[in-house]
Nucleic acid binder design. Sequence first.
DNA 1: TCTAAATGTTGACACTGATCACATGCTATT
DNA 2: AATAGCATGTGATCAGTGTCAACATTTAGA
Lengths: 202, 202
Amino acid sequence: MNQEKQNYHHGDLRNALLEAALKQIREHGVEKLSLRAVARDAGVSQTAPYRHFKDKNQLLVALAVEGYEQLRDETQQAAQTVPAAADGMTSIGLAYIDFARRNPERYKLMFGPIIHDRQNYPELQESGFNALQVVINQAEKGIATGEFVDQQPFLLANSCWAKVHGIASLMIDGFYDCAPIPSIEAFFRTLLELHLRGLFKK
Amino acid sequence: MNQEKQNYHHGDLRNALLEAALKQIREHGVEKLSLRAVARDAGVSQTAPYRHFKDKNQLLVALAVEGYEQLRDETQQAAQTVPAAADGMTSIGLAYIDFARRNPERYKLMFGPIIHDRQNYPELQESGFNALQVVINQAEKGIATGEFVDQQPFLLANSCWAKVHGIASLMIDGFYDCAPIPSIEAFFRTLLELHLRGLFKK
DNA sequence: TCTAAATGTTGACACTGATCACATGCTATT
DNA sequence: AATAGCATGTGATCAGTGTCAACATTTAGA
């Protein structure tokens, strides 16, 4: 299957298309992704992608699912490097934000309103929940060690998730670009610590 | 200017286009907004909008700016109804989330990756910061009354903002739709209180 | 009043997502 | 080994889109 010459059959077009699409959104932004451009980039006719994806939306879904899996892996690894549950949660948060920073376009795809009818794609919901599960586990750990308040893990996890997602979104949208922030990393870390400690005095 | 018959000149086409666009995104979602459909809806030729907006993106920007102003007004009003700073912050958060709930498509437009080159539109940044200013003011108030920790108001405000924005985004994206949540309002309120108190025990 | 600017129209171009019938090459059964 | 069937890729085509240039009409200011 590894001849130099182009065969009529590509061999692994599905993956080639996903890679090409990823390259395209990195270079030109996710909102201007064109299925035809993806096909061109993969060196294939404009209708070939339809043999592997029902429509453009389904290609985007596949790309988002990949992203959720990657996000889950990276946050999971971040959690494992730290013993204390609270520090692990911060570590997860920083890894999450770092993922968003390194993959802004894919992040937009995962959480933005680009994919239509999300509820029609169970694999999307599932991989999203798998990523959330890392945070839920960490919340459970923190509750078990007595570090966190005795609330439902799902609730604590959503609190953390919403916070880091909000930070990541605002960052990507450029809300922090022209703000008076000396070190963006320190800024993020402070925001996360603030989330653990709360806003109330004492 | 109020004849029944259609004049050659519309009279207030700019506003009519904005209204039509708002109606369109409410009905069909912001990502499928078509400038031509907007023009049709306003009863005008497909290129007429270009006399009032440089391109489609600029119409979206105008729509987003309107949204930021509305969001600022509603949160400001919510803050004024409550005496204590902390309660006011919760009130702001709930108003923010409520705005997102009532105007999901516009919210996507304001914070999602639909508008290109946000940094090229100073009025967008400005109206966004004006909306944030409400939260900064409330943070200052809370610091002054001694309710909140003695940190920079900008930092506290961003902490709150990120949290509610995260909640609103995840809600709109349907992340809470199939979660085991009895009352969504209570869920939001708990998340906001958790943000004030922090996750740490005691 | 006359002219210039503002506003709306027509027709066109290049591009997109999608579908159709058709061509090609792989693979499994005989 | 031959071939039938199927998965995969192609070309032509359609409707819809953003945008532009050239033209038409109305309004407003000298």
